[in-house]
Each structure stands twice: as C-alpha cells, then as structure tokens.
Design a binder for these strands. Structure first.
Length: 423
DNA sequence: TCTGGGGTCCTAGGACCC
DNA sequence: TCTGGGGTCCTAGGACCC
C-alpha cells in the first residue's frame, strides 16, 4: 500500500487565531484585514455567508459591516506566526515527520498508524485543547489527493473534520463531486481551459490523457493528473527548504509624487528587508527596487519602474543595501515626466540568498553578471598563464563565476588539482 | 583541420499558492 | 477618497559558447 500523507490545516486561520483570545467572537461574522487595512484576507464562516469575498476591499464592505455587526481586525502576523509554531508542536507529538507548507498547513507522514482516521481525530482534539484552533485533516496517497480530502472534509461537516481517502473506492465516489477548479494547482486560467475541454470535476481530470494534460498545462498539470491517479509526484519533504528570495512591499496610503517620498518608502522597505536577512542569517546577491502607480485607476497615467543590481560582495548590511537601492531607484525614476504620476506602491526584492557562512569569497572582483564578461576575464587569465593553466574563478553561487559544464575545450577542462598555484 | 549544431545560462513573464 | 503581501516553479526565447 502507498504511504499515507495527511494534510492538516486550520479553518480561517487568522480568524481562528483572533477567536482564541475573545470567546465573544464565536458564531459571529469576523474578518481580518490585509496590511494597511486594505482588504479582507480572512473571513469566518459567518462572514463568508454574508457574501464577503477573499480580497474584497474594505471600502466596499462598509455597509455590510454596519448592517451585520461584522467584527473587523487588522492583521497581526507576529501573533499568527507564534500560534502556528505551537500548532506544529502538537503535530510533532503525533508524527515524527512534519512538512510545514504554509502558516496554517502542514503535510504529515501518516505511515504506520493502524487507525489513521482515529489518530487524526485525536490530533485534532489535542490541537483544539492545547491551542484552541480547529483544524481539518485529509489523508490520501498523494499530496494533491490529500488536499482534495481535506477540502471535502471542510465542506461536509458530516466527516467531522477528518477524511481518510486512502481507499480507492472512496475516492471514486467522492472525486466526481470536486469541481476541477478546487483542485490544488488548478487556478483560474487552467480551470477555464479545462472546462472548455469538458473537464468539470476531479474525476474528469484524473481520466485526462497525460500527453493532453502536458499540452494544456505543461508538466505541472501532468503531475496533477498523476497525483490524482494516486501516483506521488510531489515528494514529502520535512527538511526546510533554503529560501530563494524575499520581498518587502507596501501600498502607500497617499499617492507619492516626488522622488524623495518614493525613496523614503523604498529605503524603509530595504531596511526592513536587511533586518529580515540578518534574522535568517542570510546574505543577498541581487537587489531589485520597484514602484508603480495605482493599477486600479485606469483613467490615470500608468508607470512601473524597476531596476535590479548585483550585491557584490553579497551582503545583509543595511548601509550597503540602501546604497544599492538608491542607485536602482535613481535609474528607474521617470525623469522629466515624473510629475504626472502618483505612485501608490513601492518595494524591494532580494534574491540569490545564501546562508552567511556560505558567502562566496571571490578571488577577483566579479564583472557584471554577463557570462561573456566572465569568459573574457578567463581568456585574459589563460593568455597570461598559458592555455593549459585554467583558473577556476569561484565557489559556485555567483553565476558569472560558476564554471560551466563544458568539457570539450581544453581551455575549460583542466582540473583544479592539476593547476599551478595561482593567487 | 573542424563555422554549425548542440548545449548552457539568463531574463521576463505567466500561473499558481497561501 | 479607499483595492494585500510574500512566495515558488515553469517556459520560451535570446545570448553566448565551442
């Protein structure tokens, strides 16, 4: 039998988190707002029943809030993160292998338990008792099927929050009831394409020929089909992945019209990003600054400015990063015509992250990221030391210095150990 | 001698997720 | 007037290399 994977997630997590501290919030409509209190990002069941949509702007909800006494909260991510960590601790009492997928979802290795559903129910009771957050559990041979089971358990109270779908006949019975757009990995666009082809349910998608799936939605869709067939394509992975990038972005309450105001916002975001880097013990190799006008105002002139730069040496230093951001912001600024734009969003993204202890110690000042320049540099070096004397330029992470896997030319094949020492 | 086909790298953009 | 923020993965196509 295939190894059972469970996914446990919390219902309306942010709302559930707020409810822990105020029992009066039970059974009444509650919403939690995004940063800047712009729109609703979490809704209690009661709020959903009022027709409040995910991402709906607050200013369109005023009437409903007033008429139904909806309780409204600003989000408190520090608190939610803390609660999330505690929930994971409970999961770890019930299985040795936990993969944290998001702030409110974990995949759990449920292999080896005799009565999986009862094990899940016990876990559910314990999370509720210790933390006060209700969770739901779906169990199946693949992650995609487990998500389906979880979704079914969510929508049908009859399951009591736990659905074990390891049994094929149960899946055969339930999958025709799952709309194709509800499947994990099927977004709006793919949903529309599939419906054009007459594929309406999870059961239909499971029967889709693999070649057709690949043609319609690349390997991603092909994998989804396989997963629905019970063939695991998405591995269970309980090692925390090295994060690849991070971003700090904010909408501005007031449109920003001059460079100083925009840069002030940008440098605040960069400062925050640098703190995040240090908090995670990382350094960044690339920094991107962007700012843009309000996309929702189609009647206004639009502009989106964005520039990237390499951070060399890689850094998590606020001063270095702000200085780089300044150069980017200058370069991206619409000189001469800036007056007609009102910028409402600005941000910074950091990429090519590395743990600080892995920061490459470059032998040379790296040229720009163009491989051509790196190659020219190598040619120069080789001319100087002779054709057989290949100098390897880096320890790998920084693309331009990564030795390419081209083994045909003698210029690039000398092994490091065969080299005369060159420093 | 072998100059074109095969391979890698990079970027931008799309789609999706919570 | 007022419309989130932070991620990942995949692909196509061009640049570049020998």
């Amino acid at each position: 039998m295939k190894r059972p994977i469970a996914i446990s997630d919390s219902a309306n997590f942010y709302v559930s988190a707020e409810r822990i501290f105020d029992p009066a919030l039970k059974n009444v409509p509650v919403i939690v707002l995004s940063n800047n209190d712009g729109c609703a990002v979490a809704r209690s069941d009661e709020a959903k029943a009022l027709g409040i949509k995910m991402g709906e702007p607050l200013h369109l909800l005023r009437d409903k809030i007033k008429a139904h006494g909806v309780k409204v909260f600003s989000s408190n991510y520090t608190l939610y993160g803390d609660i999330s960590r505690r929930v994971v601790e409970v999961y770890e009492d019930f299985t040795p292998n936990v993969e944290i997928y998001s702030i409110d979802e974990c995949f759990l290795d449920f292999g080896g338990f005799k009565d999986r559903a009862e094990h899940a129910r016990a876990m559910r009771r314990e999370v509720l008792r210790r933390i006060g957050v209700p969770v739901r559990v779906g169990i199946a041979p693949t992650k995609t099927l487990a998500k389906c089971a979880n979704d079914i358990a969510k929508k049908n109270p009859i399951f009591g929050g736990v659905l074990d779908m390891m049994d094929d006949t149960l899946a055969d019975w339930l999958l025709p009831m799952v709309p194709v757009g509800d499947i994990w990995g099927i977004g709006r666009k793919t949903d529309a394409k599939l419906r054009q082809l007459g594929i309406q349910t999870a059961s239909d998608l499971r029967a889709m020929p693999l070649r057709q799936a690949r043609a319609v939605g690349t390997v991603v869709l092909e994998r989804t089909v396989l997963e629905l067939q019970g063939e695991p394509c998405l591995a269970f992975d309980d090692v925390e992945p090295q994060r690849k990038g991070m971003a700090v972005t904010r909408s501005a309450g007031q449109p920003m019209t001059d460079f100083d105001t925009v840069f002030q916002a940008v440098s605040a975001h960069v400062t925050r990003a640098a703190e995040k880097l240090r908090q995670h013990g990382l350094v960044a190799g690339t920094l991107t600054v962007f700012f843009h006008t309000n996309r929702h105002r189609k009647d206004r002139p639009q502009y989106a400015g964005s520039r990237s730069t390499r951070i060399m040496p890689m850094s998590c230093d606020t001063f270095e990063l702000v200085r780089a951001a300044r150069r980017c912001a200058d370069a991206a600024w619409p000189k001469g015509q800036a007056a007609k734009f009102g910028f409402t969003k600005a941000g910074v993204m950091l990429d090519d992250l590395l743990p600080i202890e892995d920061r490459p110690r470059t032998l040379f000042d790296a040229p720009r990221s163009k491989s051509g320049e790196a190659m020219r540099a190598l040619d120069l070096i080789n001319d100087r030391f002779g054709k057989k004397t290949m100098v390897l330029a880096s320890e790998g992470v920084n693309r331009p210095w990564q030795l390419r896997a081209e083994h045909r030319s003698p210029r690039y094949t000398t092994r490091l150990s065969d080299l005369p020492i060159v420093r």
